[in-house]
Design a protein around this nucleic acid. Structure first.
Length: 178
DNA sequence: CCCTGATTCGC
DNA sequence: GCGAATCAGG
């Protein structure tokens, strides 16, 4: 009954996966009796494993945050300090993303935390979400929830040839994610 | 027990 | 190639 992995569905899978949706969420979104195992299997076959956003349910054990006195300020990779899973320390916060000059460096600009990330800031995750140095890109989001650069990565076209399947339903279901 | 992705392996 | 079963983890 299910259409199998048409190009449309594969494209949707890629998009949602790179967007950080969990396998089960993607499976549900795709419908058609697709299980999360199927999604994961396909993801691996596509070589998409290991994305930026490991994703977690809402279950993340977020401590309401108990700000400690002194913030050691370890920007990146504490040497061997025991990682404490606490909400972000009172961060100085976020210089407004430069309107231009996207910084040539690979993934430096993770300047927004989950607490400071605004509605129109790029939500591209940077770093390990389970560590305190995790952040988001934070530049101006123009394409969907991402800035121009990251939208390019996230929304790779991948659609070649004639897309002829009845993708309307799927496309509609995806539209709300954008 | 809920969830996550990773891997295996018969189909 | 596919995905259920299984594994390993949070």
């Amino acid at each position: 009954m299910n259409p199998g992995w048409t190009e449309d569905r594969v494209g949707a899978l890629k998009k949602l996966w790179l967007e950080g949706q969990s396998a089960s969420q993607i499976a549900k979104a795709l419908g058609g009796g697709v299980t999360r195992n199927a999604v994961i299997g396909k993801v691996h076959r596509l070589g998409l494993s290991g994305r930026a956003a490991p994703s977690q349910p809402a279950r993340t054990t977020f401590r309401p945050a108990r700000p400690r006195a002194a913030a050691p300020a370890a920007p990146v990779q504490a040497p061997s300090a025991p990682r404490r899973l606490e909400a972000a320390a009172p961060r100085p916060v976020v210089a407004a993303p430069a309107p231009q000059a996207p910084s040539p460096a690979p993934e430096l600009p993770g300047t927004a935390t989950v607490l400071t990330l605004g509605a129109h800031m790029c939500k591209w995750p940077i770093g390990d979400p389970s560590t305190r140095d995790f952040s988001f890109c934070g530049r101006r989001a123009s394409e969907g929830v991402y800035c121009v650069e990251h939208a390019r990565v996230a929304y790779q076209p991948q659609v070649r040839k004639g897309a002829k399947d009845g993708a309307s339903e799927l496309a509609r279901s995806l539209r709300r994610y954008i």
